[in-house]
Design a protein around this nucleic acid. Structure first.
Lengths: 145, 145
DNA sequence: GCCTTGTAGTTAACATGTGAATTACATCTT
DNA sequence: AAGATGTAATTCACATGTTAACTACAAGGC
């Protein structure tokens, strides 16, 4: 089997695909002075409710050292809160604040419009199939292949 | 249309997919003390021949400021060379050195083995289809949708 | 109770991502 | 030829990615 060229390798294709998609969201995030990762943290907490750092890191696909810094910044801006867990001095519960919820709600319409535009350009069925295939790939690679 | 949950959004799926794939390559790169981006630069130059910085940045999907730093580091390690272009003092041609070629050749077998293992786990046909779909997505988003 | 082992989170060090500003050249215009 | 405009590359400032080391705490074994 030939070594894949950079023109057709899975890592490069995934990277570029993500770039072109995120390009549509960046202006929105920049206008509200939040990063892509901060946005992911907010959404996960909004959807899931309070979480400990490890679980939050997994769900938002952010590494622990990055999450530590992100949490600190977002606490200062009062988008999230942190409360120590009784019975275990190591853990802390992270939760979205009312201001965080407000930000999510403010951005919701634009966010939906962007997603819809992507679906429209690429095709709704293709979009669904692509998501299925990516999830399948993630499964095949993460379950001790 | 509902806002996509973090469990099924294209940006998150692309990010996670890339993570699980790259996890297989990182040990190899770490053993040779090169980063993922340095590896991309080497491969692009090996496949394409000498390039100017802008073209190299595009092909390797690396932003100009990052490329500046990467080039500097790789020049010091003598994996690449740089030659000013006559007639235009701004441009420089970047090329892979013999040591760079040697590194690529040394890693080739392991690289192929990793790709083959991924194809095997995920399915060769699925793999091809996924690449096609990703390229199609990139096209649909980059051509002034 | 003390010691070992394990776990959650943080810190440190360095590389890259990202957007904005800057420098060095080229080219165009008049 | 001087000035305006455009382009290639770099620099700056800050955020995140990444690995390794470290701290703080918990649970289990003796």
């Amino acid at each position: 089997m030939l070594p894949p060229s950079t023109r057709r390798s899975l890592p490069m294709a995934l990277l570029r695909a993500r770039e072109v998609i995120m390009a549509h969201f960046r202006p929105m995030l920049a206008r509200h002075d939040i990063t892509e990762q901060q946005w992911r943290v907010l959404r996960v907490l909004a959807e899931t409710g309070p979480l400990e750092a490890t679980e939050l890191a997994n769900r938002a696909s952010i590494l622990p050292p990055s999450l530590t810094r992100i949490i600190k910044a977002m606490e200062e801006r009062e988008f999230i809160t942190r409360n120590k867990v009784k019975d275990d001095g190591r853990r802390a519960l992270l939760a979205i604040s009312p201001a965080g919820v407000a930000l999510i709600e403010e951005l919701a319409p634009e966010r939906i419009a962007i997603y819809d535009a992507i679906e429209k350009r690429y095709g709704a069925e293709e979009h669904e199939r692509l998501l299925d295939m990516l999830e399948s790939l993630i499964q095949s690679e993460s379950t001790e292949g």
